Simulated scan of single mutants.
Amino acid sequence: MVDLATAVTAVTERMLVDAGIREGMRVLDVGCGRGLVSLLIARLVGERGQVVGVDIDSRALTMARETVQDSRITFVEGDFRSLASEHGQFDAAVGRRVLMYQPDAVEALRGLARVLRPGGLMVFQEHDSTVAPTSLTPLPLHARVREWMWRTVEREGGNVHMGFGLASALTRAGLTVEHLRAEAIVQTPEMHHYVGPIARAMLPRILERGVATEVELGIDTLDARLIEERTKADATYIGEMIFCASARMPR
Rank of each mutant, 00 (worst) to 15 (best):
P140I: 13
A184T: 10
V186S: 07
V160Y: 00
W150G: 07
V186L: 15
R144W: 10
G158R: 04
L136K: 05
P138M: 12
M191A: 15
I198K: 04
A199V: 14
P189M: 07
A182L: 09
H161M: 03
A169E: 05
I219T: 06
M191D: 13
M162E: 02
W148L: 06
L217H: 00
R181N: 15
D220R: 07
E126P: 07
V215Y: 10
R155H: 13
V131C: 06
R200D: 12
P204V: 09
L180C: 00
T130S: 15
L141E: 04
W148I: 08
G196W: 04
V195H: 01
S135V: 08
L207H: 05
E178D: 15
T213K: 04
V153N: 09
H142P: 03
R230T: 00
A212H: 00
R181E: 15
G210H: 05
L217N: 00
P189Y: 02
E214K: 13
S129R: 14
D220C: 06
W148Q: 03
V211W: 01
A132R: 15
A167R: 07
F164W: 11
A212V: 00
E183C: 04
A201S: 13
A199I: 14
L141T: 08
V195W: 06
H192Y: 14
P204F: 01
R172L: 10
G218D: 00
G174L: 08
Q125P: 07
Q125V: 12
E190N: 09
I219R: 01
R225W: 00
L217Y: 03
E156F: 10
E190A: 15
T137V: 14
H127D: 13
E228K: 13
A199K: 04
T188I: 08
T171N: 09
F164A: 12
R151Q: 15
H179L: 11
R200L: 11
H192S: 05
E216A: 13
T176Y: 06
E178K: 12
L217M: 12
A184C: 13
G210Y: 06
E216S: 10
E178A: 11
V160R: 02
E126Q: 12
M202E: 06
A212N: 00
E147H: 13
V215D: 14
L217C: 11
V145S: 05
A132G: 10
R172F: 02
V153R: 07
T213H: 03
L136I: 04
V145F: 02
E154N: 12
G165I: 06
E190I: 10
E178N: 12
M162F: 03
P197I: 03
L170C: 10
M202P: 02
